[in-house]
Amino acid sequence: MKKEECFYLGKIVKKYSFKGELLAKLDTDEPDLYDNLDAIFIDLRGNLVPFFIESSQLHKSDLLRLKFEDVNDEADADALLKTELYLPLELLPKLEGDKFYFHEVIGFNIKDQNFGNVGIITGINDSTAQSLFEIDRDGIEILIPMNDEFIVKVDRENKTIVVNTPEGLIDLYLEE
């Protein structure tokens, strides 16, 4: 399984017991979707390694308490601390309407209601307080905030996102 075929679920943050149990901080708004998993991939030195889950339960709402098969003591658990957890993309719940996963809209076309065709989404920058669409318009990078008020429609069938940005925002990138 390659990392590109998976999504980041969270990170193992601490040990829970002397029996090898671990606590993982999940990167999701709905942690209860992931408390009945059979297996999970753990990133060990750049390789995704499957681990089978003996038992799991939600712990204090945003943590998942995990007991893996063959992880039976503190030494085994120590080796997994701070590792990242991944699951195959097909396990992501399907989103409806104007909600989308970042990876799913790469390659989509962006159209602005006033400006017209803007370009193709090449990436999502989520390192800032406000996530941004990174759009390529004939070699010029345009950044548009992923603001619910700007997103008019997500058209999965035609791979297009229609936005309504403040007047002049797109022109800022195109002025010489």
Rank of each mutant, 00 (worst) to 15 (best):
L91A: 04
I151V: 15
L143R: 12
G123K: 02
E90L: 07
V105M: 04
D98M: 01
K82D: 12
A79D: 09
D126P: 05
I161H: 02
T122K: 06
R137W: 06
G107C: 01
Q113P: 04
L87E: 08
T128F: 08
F133Q: 06
K153G: 06
P88K: 12
T165I: 03
N147C: 13
P166C: 00
V154D: 00
I144H: 08
F150K: 03
N164K: 14
V162N: 05
I124T: 11
I161L: 07
P88W: 02
K94W: 02
V154W: 02
F115A: 06
D98K: 09
I121L: 06
N125E: 14
Q113H: 01
Q113T: 08
M146H: 05
K99E: 11
I142D: 01
K99D: 09
N147L: 13
E157G: 05
E141K: 14
I121K: 03
L89C: 07
A79Q: 03
N164P: 14
V105S: 03
L95A: 00
N109I: 11
A79K: 07
D126H: 10
D138P: 05
D78K: 15
G97D: 07
L81F: 11
F115Q: 12
D112E: 11
K82H: 11
I124K: 10
D138L: 11
N147F: 07
D112R: 13
L81S: 10
S127Y: 11
F150Y: 15
L169C: 03
I151E: 14
D76T: 05
I140C: 02
D98V: 02
M146E: 08
L85V: 10
F108A: 10
K82Q: 11
D148K: 15
T160K: 07
E141Y: 09
G139P: 07
T83A: 04
I170F: 00
R137Y: 14
S131Q: 12
E96I: 10
G107Y: 01
R156T: 04
D76W: 04
G97N: 01
I161G: 05
N109C: 05
L89G: 04
E141T: 14
I121T: 03
K159G: 15
Q113A: 07
H103R: 12
E141F: 09
I110D: 15
P88M: 02
I161Q: 04
I170H: 00
